[in-house]
Simulated assay, not measured.
Amino acid sequence: MTGTPRPTPRPTTRPRVAVVFGGRSTEHAISCVSAGSVLAAIDRERYDVVPIGIATDGRWVLESGDPERLRLDGAGALPRVDGDRAPVALSRVEHGTDLVVSEPSHPPQTLGEVDVVFPVLHGPWGEDGTIQGMLEMAGVRYVGAGVLASAVSMDKAYMKVVLAAAGLPVMPSITVTTRSWAADPDACRRAADALGYPLFVKPARGGSSIGISKAHDASELDACLAVAFEHDPRALVEVSAEGAREVECGVLQALDGTPETSVPAELRVNGDHEFYDFEAKYLPDEATSVDIPAVLPDGVETEMRALSVRAFEAVGCEGLARVDFFVMPDGSLVVNEVNTMPGFTPLSMFPQMWAATGLDYPALVDRLIALALARGTGLR
């Protein structure tokens, strides 16, 4: 058993923030990197911080609070939660929810009440409403969207249904499941053909561009679906926005709940990357360049910021979201995705956009914690 430095039972009245990261999804490492940045930014004079890691097998452990251990190194090695550290659990008690640490060689130790959880989790079993539901049941306040908004936004297929119902523009797509593919692959191929190539094939409930590939014609569809099915039994097959610009906008609630928007940012993929894949997003090189703020035609930024708020409210987001757009060659806008827990790594766009808007990284983290502390659990 790896020895784990334990926080002492809370001696002050500072709010206790549990930063939860890692998780069982394919975005485990990116969650760790995001958490390292959050841990480095939280004001320790204002908050009592407890780092909690979720190992890839689902074990919750009391992790190291050292942000350096959670960084990407120059060689691209990815950090992971150390599952051998002391197990930790949330325990509902009369006065609230306590944090309890236990090891075979020690009696269980209660560290005191958790005031708010900052779930820096990306992908399924974290960003999809699962941990949000657990925290609601435990009566613990948390940063970010609730159960429904998290679940809807995580599933790209259902997200499109909700956005389209709210009158927001989305790219045409179909959903192919492993079951429908096994039952009638020719019918799936015909449905994809009807959309027109090229097509992007994505895990419906994934992120960080993991498992995404581009089918340039019908001959590549089967292989692209096989890649997506490695990560999710539901795949989204979507028309490629050929010639479009990829522009993102951040949404952040003010302390009174009003959604505010950041200046947009444009991502441009260079070199050998045909699209904004995992390596282009997270491994520093010259694959991408960024314009913050994005240089947009007259009126497009205003429209994008208004559509960002509409998308935020359509899925019922809270706290924060990043709304991704395609700016089509004719200048029209299409909503690509709503991300309820966007990346918080040093290269992530959400913090960069807000910094350019006038809210630096520590202030952004503080705003999110303050919003969570002011919000209760349950129906609202």
Results as ranks from 00 to 15, higher is better:
residue 191 A to F: 00
residue 286 E to P: 00
residue 227 V to L: 15
residue 11 P to L: 13
residue 242 E to W: 00
residue 354 W to D: 11
residue 211 G to D: 04
residue 119 P to S: 03
residue 342 P to H: 08
residue 41 A to Y: 03
residue 285 D to N: 13
residue 75 A to K: 00
residue 67 P to L: 04
residue 248 E to D: 14
residue 72 L to A: 05
residue 6 R to Y: 11
residue 96 G to M: 04
residue 29 A to C: 02
residue 81 V to C: 05
residue 219 S to R: 11
residue 95 H to R: 09
residue 75 A to L: 14
residue 62 L to R: 02
residue 350 F to D: 01
residue 191 A to G: 13
residue 213 S to E: 11
residue 315 V to P: 14
residue 36 G to F: 10
residue 3 G to H: 13
residue 244 A to T: 01
residue 52 I to M: 12
residue 121 L to A: 01
residue 178 T to K: 11
residue 147 V to I: 15
residue 24 R to Y: 00
residue 70 L to R: 00
residue 89 A to G: 13
residue 25 S to R: 07
residue 100 V to W: 00
residue 291 D to R: 09
residue 300 V to L: 11
residue 109 Q to D: 10
residue 100 V to T: 01
residue 23 G to H: 12
residue 42 I to V: 15
residue 75 A to R: 06
residue 159 M to I: 01
residue 293 P to V: 13
residue 6 R to V: 10
residue 318 E to C: 11
residue 86 A to Q: 01
residue 234 R to N: 15
residue 161 V to H: 10
residue 2 T to N: 10
residue 200 F to Y: 14
residue 111 L to C: 12
residue 242 E to K: 04
residue 331 G to M: 09
residue 118 F to E: 03
residue 201 V to D: 06
residue 22 G to Q: 02
residue 249 C to W: 04
residue 326 F to A: 02
residue 1 M to F: 14
residue 138 A to M: 14
residue 63 E to T: 00
residue 248 E to F: 05
residue 68 E to D: 14
residue 316 G to K: 06
residue 160 K to I: 06
residue 192 A to F: 13
residue 178 T to A: 14
residue 243 G to I: 07
residue 270 N to V: 05
residue 179 R to A: 15
residue 171 M to H: 03
residue 142 Y to N: 03
residue 37 S to W: 00
residue 297 P to H: 08
residue 42 I to T: 10
residue 51 P to T: 04
residue 259 P to F: 01
residue 110 T to P: 00
residue 326 F to M: 13
residue 83 G to V: 00
residue 154 M to A: 09
residue 309 V to I: 14
residue 204 A to R: 03
residue 166 A to I: 08
residue 11 P to T: 14
residue 290 V to E: 15
residue 228 A to T: 08
residue 329 P to K: 06
residue 43 D to V: 07
residue 259 P to V: 05
residue 117 V to G: 06
residue 366 D to T: 09
residue 305 R to W: 13
residue 104 P to H: 10
